[in-house]
Design a protein around this nucleic acid. Structure first.
Lengths: 240, 240
DNA sequence: GAGCCTCAACTCATCAGAGGAGTTGCCGCA
DNA sequence: TGCGGCAACTCCTCTGATGAGTTGAGGCTC
């Protein structure tokens, strides 16, 4: 009674719902179902795989938790495009479970973004450079702290975009929220005098200049310096 | 009818099983349940949260898919320690969905491991250095290719361990399998002459020497050189 | 008294059937 | 032609029940 016709050679699923997961996962990763495609309905899958709807539901639910599909009430499950929600979940969980994880995560971001800046200097298109400069300008013109932070994030996001490496983009995107939350929490009630916005902007501009000049190692150096500053600020806030 | 007494301020869960997920997630991340602890049984949770066992099951299943808990037949769900399975899943999926992802992933590993080598030069304990040297020796003594690869992986794993940054360790651990699978597939049927094992070992030894000498930037440079070689080999295999 | 075996209680795994709620597209009406 | 309503489809949740794996207590044997 082989429930799943497409049994993967690797390992036999222990439970029926694992079989559902394995089945659908294979079809998605094979490209049989592309991002945006609708999966068969629960009823259809149940009939096809010879299991109850409940079992199908659990399997689909697992895939949804892993970010491979999206389910919404009244509609069929839809295959999701690769996205950062899973990574965001993971990083958020790690940081919340252990406060020291925040600094570790910051360190990882440093490593990745320094490399991203290097790649951006090599691969950025003119449109991407324009977008970076616009973010820089928005930082300078920011009326309040929230606007500044938003422009700041847009700048960093733009660099990962310009790196041309989607995995880097997803990773940094996944880290952004936990880091931002951590930053807010550690700075709460801190705010002794305004932060050195002009200095921050200058650091960003230095990164941009090196990227625009196609100077890979210079861009890496500038980014390293900038993130070092960020890290020091956070450490100082922590030690209070 | 507030089903969940511990409704997080953030956003109200849309569905009942999301509420279960949110409830348990909060308790785990708060530390109310530590890694290794057993969760209440499905029946107990159902009574506690005023939902059916089915709904509880779906919620627990989601958490299992996200790596926060582990469920096995006949036993209560157990809170899992932070681990790399989720990341491995993510990276594997990404690479399988898009072959170009392999090179992107390799690039990310380069960025992270170069940084790890730098950190290891600063933080490695004597025991960790000994372990690295043992792996190096095992590479030199390896009787066959599999043993060599195993020792190779042990060496790299040891460096992330010595970096003292657990997030780096988890990330590299999560990338190891997809990269190894990708390497095997692209090298399949390739094998024109034996690879330059002596050169590889020399590169590893250079990394080790710089770490042992507490030379952070030298270690980073040596690691970058080594991973550059790896990358070039893979690219060459690809282009056939 | 020590060690092994059996079994009962607990737990997760899965099934079947049914009602509620959200979405979508067709059809008829103005 | 344009719009409103209804019907079909889908996911969401519940109830009740059976099968299968795990564990620890109790009794039996030596």
């Amino acid at each position: 009674m082989a429930a799943t016709p497409t049994e993967p050679a690797g390992s036999a699923p222990r439970t029926a719902s694992d079989a559902v997961v394995a089945h659908l996962e294979t079809l998605i990763l094979d490209g049989t179902y592309q991002a945006g495609d609708s999966l068969p309905s629960e009823t259809e899958l149940a009939a096809e795989l010879q299991v109850s709807r409940l079992t199908v539901r659990e399997g689909v639910r697992s895939l949804a938790a892993r970010g491979l599909v999206e389910v919404s009430h009244g509609r069929r499950p839809v295959v999701a495009a690769p996205n950062a929600t899973l990574l965001r979940d993971f990083f958020s969980s790690s940081v919340r479970r252990d406060a020291a994880g925040l600094l570790e995560l910051l360190d990882v971001r440093l490593a990745i973004e320094v490399h991203a800046a290097e790649l951006a200097a090599r691969h950025a298109t003119q449109a991407q450079l324009d977008s970076l400069e616009a973010a820089l300008q928005a930082m300078a013109d920011a009326p309040d702290d929230d606007a500044f932070t938003a422009a700041d994030m847009r700048f960093h996001h733009g660099i990962t975009e310009a790196s041309g490496n989607r995995m880097i983009r997803l990773l940094v995107e996944g880290m952004a929220e936990p880091l931002e939350v951590g930053r807010r929490q550690s700075l709460r009630g801190y705010l002794q005098g305004a932060p050195d916005l002009d200095g921050l902007i200058a650091e960003h501009r230095a990164v941009f200049d090196r990227i625009a000049a196609r100077d890979a190692s210079g861009a890496a150096r500038a980014m390293r310096k900038h993130l070092g500053t960020t890290r020091r600020d956070l450490l100082r806030a922590f030690s209070r």
